[in-house]
């Protein structure tokens, strides 16, 4: 899609949205991203922000419903979809969503490891964690170690 000139009003809303995100104000982020997306249903960034706001507010049903109503935009957000399914205990659906991906990114692999753990597929979960440990370097190394220990304990 060609980059279009953004109006000053839209820029002002994005400034509000960035501020809300920086402040961890997910209610406000939801309000502003909903306004942006309502005004421009082609705005995939506003759509993404709206979905993340729902997730951060624990509104997983609302997130899934919004994705269902906007399936074309939602195809770009498989991690978010699978995460909502996981949190709603639709674990088999979450697994299916993640398995359908040709090249799952590290976030999807992380979620896959959690989904497999919940499904008591411990050996496969462990193998996903081993690969993640090798290929990631972020702020969650300790949490990942703890999760891997839980998986290992379940195998023994």
């Amino acid at each position: 899609m060609a980059q279009q000139q953004q109006t000053a009003a839209v820029t002002a809303l994005y400034v509000d949205l960035q501020r809300a995100i920086n402040n961890g104000d997910h209610e406000k982020a939801l309000k502003v991203s909903s306004k942006l997306f309502g005004d421009n249903p082609a705005d995939d960034r506003a759509f993404h922000c709206k979905i993340v706001s729902f997730i951060q507010l624990g509104k997983f049903d609302d997130a899934l419903l919004t994705m269902k109503k906007n399936q074309e935009l939602a195809t770009a957000l498989p991690f978010e979809k699978a995460y909502c399914e996981y949190r709603l205990n639709r674990t088999a659906e979450a697994l299916r969503t993640l398995r359908n991906l040709e090249n799952p990114d590290t976030r999807c692999q992380e979620l896959l490891a959690q989904v497999l753990y919940r499904l008591e597929e411990h050996r496969e979960s462990l193998s996903v964690y081993r690969s993640l440990m090798k290929n990631t370097q972020d702020d969650y190394e300790e949490e990942r170690e703890t999760n891997m220990s839980a998986v290992q304990a379940a195998i023994q």
Partner: peptide
Amino acid sequence: KPLFFDVALSLADYPSLEDKL
């Protein structure tokens, strides 16, 4: 039950808005 963190939630982050500001 062993401790198990929801790391995926921490990874459910907002996209960058840099080019929109």
